[in-house]
Design a protein around this nucleic acid. Sequence first.
DNA 1: CTCCAGGTCTGGT
DNA 2: ACCAGACATGGA
Length: 227
Amino acid sequence: KSYLSLDTSTADAEAMLPRRSDAHLDMAMRAFPGLRILRQPFGETLLGFLCSATKQIVQIKQMLALLAEHHGSPLPTTCHLIDDKPVRALPTWTQLAELSEEQLRGCQLGFRARYIKGTADFLAAHPGWLEQTATLPYADAKAALCILPGVGEKIADCVALFGLGHLAAFPVDTWMIKTMSRRYGLTGWSPTQVAHFGRVHFGPVAGLAQQYLFAWERAHGKDLSSD
DNA sequence: CTCCAGGTCTGGT
DNA sequence: ACCAGACATGGA
């Protein structure tokens, strides 16, 4: 493959999607040309999605901003100054393990503070756990993540997809439930059933399909009381 | 003022 | 195994 191509991997993955036989997916892909899956740091991805349970996306951003401001290390000031103050990184899991649950609740985490504290304690007691998990294939990595307090099927799939690059992960959230009901006729299906459908229908790059469907539904399916 | 938000866990059938 | 409630907090 040519080094001139910036991301052959995504192009190859897109070629594996069933857009010939799936008109809705094809439309979503046309609506968001250039959509890409971010590959974010594993630990930061885990933290971010531990904050995500039953929260709006704008609020998740705010929680993470508070965590960084209150407990993150300052980034080099050369190119990171806002309002005369240094931008801070997200706290590492080592830093998080030093915090009390009350300190975490101070970042508007609500009941998620207990999960984050529990995960921080687990990781502190198991050095190298994140690094080891990052080497595992998708199914094993997901199973490992589900051990952590506050991490269930959905969050494990999000972390596997965005933090480890496992395109087979198919996170089923409220938007996927809406999408699969409205556009695929899977009305009344449980998250487990929808996840199974997604893996079978979209195959080993189901996570990429999920992102197109998620983006389309968020952009066009705001209202539509037709669940 | 109710309802819901990129869920998960727990204790009931 | 499957099904409600609880769980914090703030925007719609």
